[in-house]
Design a protein around this nucleic acid. Structure first.
Lengths: 352, 352
DNA sequence: GAGCGGAGATCACTCAAGATC
DNA sequence: AGATCTTGAGTGATCTCCGCT
């Protein structure tokens, strides 16, 4: 139940009825044609510095702002859309900051659409951004099939963020997840660990997902060290981490270190270890990936692979604006991650 | 530095050049006028069921979708905008879920604009949403002055979310923060605590902020219990919680319980207490507010005031769509919070 | 006059082509 | 000729008004 605040006699809600200032008003004030104003607005060819100044003054005096809908009918909207799965993950917040910074610098506006989970909801979000005639889209970790992605990219400039792509029609920016996993393994092996497990998830079959590359990187670097990989299939959630911990602790021969694959899973793992009174890192070392702010906040600071989220966001936005300028073959970037060592990882126990 | 993935010879990026399906195409296919189609699209008066069906079939067959920009020129966009300060706080994520659910049900689209901190950036975000001719706006916890808010509300339908409002021109939905603080105090006093401190922040001077009402609620309920309020001025951040902990621990006569005002501050406080080896809740009880997911994850589960975020979001969106339908005096709602008791709060220590 | 359907103006811009110096 | 500026068409919907049952 909710309460409505008490109020006196209803006041009159008078809506502002003044007509919005249009390009015609500006043209009139500056004593030029509307096309001249339009050229100034778009920095287009064919206008003298003198006119630019006249027009700009009129714009400022009238407080004119172009209406995006009208622009959309013939030209560009100077708006890029971002489709986000969820906003829980603080990692997405950092990506968005990067996107926003780059867009700002180029006088582009950013609008975000919450796509929710499931490919259907994601496609719906994308379609509606196309209805808004956005100039291009950044898709954050889309769970779309490759052919759906290609079909989209044929209709509107697209950059895929947080997923390894190889499409010729769109650009992609991802973290070098294989390298990240390698950093984690190297760190643990350097501390003397030999039995290092890895938590993965296999919830979606689409290609290019981070989990695929992290697992591959883990396997490769374990092999390089002459060690046997041990992959535990769970989900990258708090609950998934807890479940994995239970399974690992039931074993006769436990690992001495675990790479959680993602922070949220590593945190669930830590939580269960605390409940079972397994000392970290004395008995078991734990490493995560994503370097979420929470990783620093938990009692045993979580060692984690940091992805250059802000940089990735910036890069994605720049690629998109470039692609909006002119179509070209897809470019695909990997950003190198780095390891942030905290106290959840330590030397292998004596008997290990 | 970043690496570009290796690629073969550049493929040809052929952009799809087919013209978008328009209302004219639909009208032609259905053998009716464009106005007829428009009426069907808007559920407007003056169309027979027979025609509705003909038109709907043509729409489905052609996969027609109205272009928002064209609609914007004369009518509505069926889009509501949300301005968000940041997306770090998971609380905002829940609000957005509520907004999205209510909007979905009414066939409205939601687009989010990241406003960043500072009133300038927020106004900029709002202006650009107005440029997009959104039908209405939900402002999440805006740090705007009351007169700025009123001026905006005169231009576009507005609902303020997460801030106590009293404006006659806009609606507001907030949590009953005073009640929330009272729940926390009652809980602690019920456990025998007498010296209960409260952390607040005074970063902004605008009226209606949650901190104002939480502090007032805390003071009132302390007085009701015949106890002396003790308010610590800090910031509602992790660091702010740490700083507050230090100040409280320096005191000769420490409190036996602290209401952190917000989860993030309470978590910082807990963190510092752990470092200083102050047992919680044996020596000091801690309560937060917001019931963020992290509250449940920390080793000593944080007792917290839960706000009905999803419900608030739904309510805000419904109010906005109603207000878009017809202007009316402002309505202001408070949603009742509830207390989630976990293990960070316990009986007052013997010597307390 | 109520209900249904259509004709044509209109919205605020951009763009291609033409006029002017 | 070349740079600058204007004219006028075009964009895709809605909305008002009108005529016909």
């Amino acid at each position: 139940m909710t309460l409505e605040a008490d109020r006196g006699p209803s006041p009159v809600p008078s809506r502002d009825t003044r007509r919005r200032v249009t390009i015609v008003d500006v043209a009139g004030r500056a004593g030029v044609s509307t096309s001249a104003v339009s050229k100034v607005l778009r920095n287009a060819y064919g206008s003298s510095p003198a006119m630019r100044e006249r027009v700009q003054r009129a714009i400022d005096e009238l407080g004119y702002r172009p209406m995006v809908g009208a622009r959309a009918m013939r030209g560009a909207t100077y708006t890029i859309g971002v489709s986000a799965l969820d906003l829980w993950n603080p990692f997405f917040g950092l990506l968005l900051e990067g996107i926003g910074a780059a867009a700002d610098a180029a006088d582009y506006q950013v609008l975000i659409s919450l796509a929710g989970d499931g490919p259907t909801a994601q496609l719906r979000a994308v379609e509606s951004m196309i209805d808004h005639r956005m100039d291009g889209l950044v898709l954050m970790a889309p769970r779309l099939e490759t052919d759906e992605l290609e079909a989209l990219a044929r209709r509107i400039p697209i950059v895929v963020l947080g997923r390894h792509g190889r499409g010729p029609l769109y650009d992609s920016v991802a973290s070098d997840d294989a390298l990240g996993a390698r950093l984690a393994v190297d760190h643990l092996v350097g501390l003397g660990h030999q039995r290092v497990s890895f938590l993965t998830q296999r919830v979606s079959r689409v290609e290019g997902l981070p989990e695929t590359f992290r697992e591959a990187g883990y396997r490769a670097s374990m092999t390089d060290h002459g060690l046997r990989p041990d992959v535990v299939d769970t989900t990258w959630t708090q609950a998934g981490g807890v479940a994995a911990a239970r399974r690992l602790l039931r074993r006769r021969r436990r690992p001495t270190a675990v790479h959680g694959g993602a922070d949220v899973a590593a945190l669930g793992l830590l939580d269960e270890l605390r409940r079972r009174r397994v000392p970290v890192p004395a008995e078991l070392s734990v490493v995560g990936c994503d370097n979420t702010p929470v990783a620093a906040m938990v009692p045993v600071g979580l060692t984690s692979v940091d992805q250059d989220a802000r940089g990735m966001g910036r890069r994605a936005a720049r690629l998109l604006m470039d692609r909006i300028g002119s179509a070209r073959p897809g470019r695909h970037f990997l950003h190198p991650p780095s390891l942030v060592v905290r106290s959840s990882s330590g030397p292998v126990p004596a008997g290990g």
